[in-house]
Simulated assay, not measured.
Amino acid sequence: MLNQNGRTAKLPDGPIVITGGAGMIGSMVAWHLNDACDRDDLIIVDHLQHSDQWQNLCRRRYSDYLDRDQLFPWLQSGVKPGAVIHMGAISATTERDVNLLMQYNFKYSQALWQWCARNEVPFLYASSAATYGDGAHGYDDNVFDPLRPLNEYGYSKHLFDLWVLRQVAQRVTPPHWCGFKFFNVYGPNEYHKQDMASMTWHCFRQIRDTGKIRLFRSARADYADGMQLRDFIYVKDAVDVVAHFLAHRHTSGIFNVGTGKARTFRDLALAVTHCQERDPAIEWIDMPAGLHGRYQYFTQASLAKLRDAGYTAPFRSLEDGVADYVRHYLTHPDPYC
């Protein structure tokens, strides 16, 4: 593949393991490696629990599929992968089973990190902007200790970030490693996520089926209805970042993956309706009681660390990302990438 200066950047030799490879981001990482890098020596690891999730793999080229419980026996068989891209996790922000989150978002991730450190295999993993909580300490990816996530999912991701930093301080690391604090990712192959799918997907379906988009009323006086702000990033841009660091192994660290520009939910609704050539009819609904005190009213990635690490590519605007998603996927009979 070519780097952003037009020079060749070499991907690791050996098979590339992608955990969560049938999920939204994982399957799109596989898409990028197939189409942009002509790599099909991929080991897809997942634990399929949704009836349609297999469709995320239908157009992918890969050499093997493993259930998440088969991964460690495979690793111990003597095969040395070129890299492990760990996108697998329980990603529902509404998950309340802390033991389950600890098992798969923390302990499983620890075990993979330790294996990669012992065997000198690059390790890239998914963190989350949910680690930032209510944003009281900003969205700087150099700040960790004072953060207080708003939900159990965010805490499980934050806990692993903190553990990684302790491993770094003790110099117990893979030869190259990166964590990615993904902000609000939307785009193809998220359909199995249902309630946890992006607001872009929900807005599209609502305007198509009912002629209206339902948005939460604000419960804070400093935010008008629909003016809650999020950093929405198109999934194709998110996986470009992952692929860049997979090929450029001179810099390790934990990086924000967002556009650096917060946009309102009203902006999102208008972008979706524009692509469907519909009038922007919005119905305001009360926020569910379970989200009070757990809802982020503002997120915006600081990109200074990412840019300093050499990632200089621009990110799509909300309007451009939504247009590609709606026109090339959501309005097609087969919406899978």
Rank of each mutant, 00 (worst) to 15 (best):
I233V: 15
G88I: 09
L71Q: 04
A301Y: 08
D231E: 07
T251L: 05
A126Y: 04
L162F: 02
R316F: 08
K261S: 09
Y191R: 11
A304K: 06
P333L: 03
R266L: 14
V172E: 15
G226T: 06
P149Y: 10
H202A: 13
D134H: 04
M87S: 09
A130I: 00
L112V: 04
G26D: 02
M24K: 05
R266E: 09
S317Y: 12
R327H: 07
R39H: 04
S317Q: 07
W177L: 05
A247I: 05
K10I: 12
G88W: 03
V121M: 07
A313V: 06
P174I: 10
A219P: 00
D97T: 11
T299I: 06
F144G: 00
G21R: 01
G179E: 11
D38G: 07
P288W: 09
K80H: 05
A83R: 08
L306G: 11
K157V: 10
I25D: 02
R278Q: 15
G23S: 03
L147I: 04
P314A: 10
T94Q: 14
F160N: 09
L303G: 07
G260Y: 11
A309H: 11
P73A: 04
E283C: 13
R96P: 03
R230D: 04
Q70Y: 00
N184G: 06
S27K: 04
I43K: 01
L268A: 13
V164S: 09
E120K: 15
R316P: 00
T273K: 01
V29P: 02
G260S: 08
D52M: 03
Y186A: 09
E319F: 05
G88N: 11
E152N: 14
I90S: 03
T312H: 14
C337T: 02
D64W: 00
R249T: 10
R278S: 09
G20H: 03
A323W: 06
A219D: 15
P146S: 10
H202Q: 15
M24R: 01
F72W: 02
Y329G: 00
C178V: 13
M24V: 00
L165Y: 09
Q110K: 14
G253L: 11
T173W: 06
Y234V: 07
G26E: 04
A83E: 08
L48G: 04
R294P: 04
A9S: 11
L147K: 04
I213P: 06
D97F: 05
Q228G: 08
D279M: 08
R205D: 13
D64F: 00
K212V: 11
T273Q: 02
I282V: 15
W54V: 06
P15E: 14
A130G: 02
D209N: 12
H50D: 12
Y329D: 05
L112P: 04
F298L: 13
V143I: 15
N99L: 12
K181C: 14
N99V: 10
K10G: 00
I18S: 01
K236C: 05
W54Y: 11
N5G: 01
D308K: 14
L270H: 12
W284H: 10
A30H: 06
A281N: 12
D145A: 14
V257I: 13
D134N: 13
D38W: 05
A313S: 13
G14K: 06
R294I: 13
V45E: 01
R60M: 15
L57I: 10
A269D: 05
G78R: 09
V241W: 09
I254Q: 07
H50R: 12
Y104C: 05
R166P: 00
T273H: 03
P188F: 01
I16L: 14
G88C: 10
